[in-house]
């Protein structure tokens, strides 16, 4: 066993996997940094109540007319986006975003690995922002209205109420579903290989073409799984700790 770990083949495998893993990590963190705030924007957008024609609505008008007059464009656009993104496979979104701009002569991604990375990051950020936005929406709407009213009658401003009263209660509500989503993201990063981004599975699989044929693939694939397990283990541990920290109130 020890001989196996120090053998030159293993060294080659691990260094290749490390290289792929760095890509995976990059994709993971860039997605989080982009999707966490973008998700909040989409959540606020889909809850936006702006209806430009609302003031023309009267109780006695027909249902259809009132629906048109009460139409909320910002909310509708955000919900449509969420529906499309959540309703189609991420793989399809990655392929579309990478190939369609070139095929339709809209623009070309930079050539090589950097262009692939850029396209994949954007696809991931949009996809995850949509999922996050629904989690945020649940968290925001889950805080009882009474909390806001209690703040109001105590003479607090809207922003004081948001930052001092409701925000922490929202965070507490969204941590468990966010943990779920973030762990899915750890593994979803592997979808980037569909446009040949050299993330860890791509690297592991590349040993298939080595001189030992299919049988040489077993160990690289095994180590790939270990990387994922360790990675998602660390993420689980950190988010679990955050959840514990917020347990002081209910």
């Amino acid at each position: 066993m020890f001989a196996f770990f120090s053998s030159p083949t293993t060294q080659t495998v691990l260094s290749a996997l490390n290289e792929g893993f760095v890509r995976t990590l990059e994709l993971f963190f860039i997605t989080l940094v982009g999707a966490v705030p973008l998700g909040l924007l989409i959540a606020l957008g889909s809850m936006n109540r702006w209806a430009p024609l609302h003031r023309f609505a009267r109780p006695k008008q027909s249902k259809a007319l009132r629906a048109v007059l009460n139409f909320r464009p910002v909310s509708a656009i955000c919900r449509l986006l969420v529906w499309i993104i959540r309703g189609t496979p991420l793989v399809l979104q990655i392929i579309t975003l990478f190939y369609v701009p070139g095929l339709e002569h809209l623009f070309n991604w930079p050539s090589g690995e950097s262009g692939r990375m850029m396209a994949v990051c954007i696809a991931f950020i949009i996809n995850y922002a949509c999922y996050f936005s629904e989690i945020y929406r649940g968290g925001i709407q889950g805080v009882p209205v009474g909390q806001q009213e209690a703040g109001l009658v105590l003479g607090m401003t809207r922003s004081q109420i948001f930052f001092k009263v409701t925000l922490l209660q929202m965070i507490k509500r969204i941590v468990p579903p966010m943990s779920n989503e973030v762990i899915t993201l750890v593994k979803d990063t592997s979808l980037a290989r569909v446009i040949a981004l050299q993330e860890i599975i791509w690297m592991g699989e590349s040993f298939m073409k080595g001189n030992r044929g299919i049988s040489g693939l077993v160990w690289p694939l095994f180590f790939t799984a270990v990387y994922y397990l360790v990675f998602s283990g660390v993420v689980t541990l950190l988010l679990g700790r955050l959840e514990k920290k917020l347990e002081f109130f209910r």
């Binding site: 009882p144 009474g146 909390q147 009213e149 209690a150 109001l152 009658v153 003479g155 401003t157 009263v165 922490l168 209660q169 507490k172 002081f248 109130f249 209910r250």
Partner: peptide
């Protein structure tokens, strides 16, 4: 309105204490 609210205090049926 914010200042005017301070003339009144309100105790709610279901308390509405801030849990944190």
């Amino acid at each position: 309105v914010r200042r005017k609210r301070l003339h009144f205090g309100l105790v709610f049926q279901n308390f509405n204490l801030f849990p944190q």
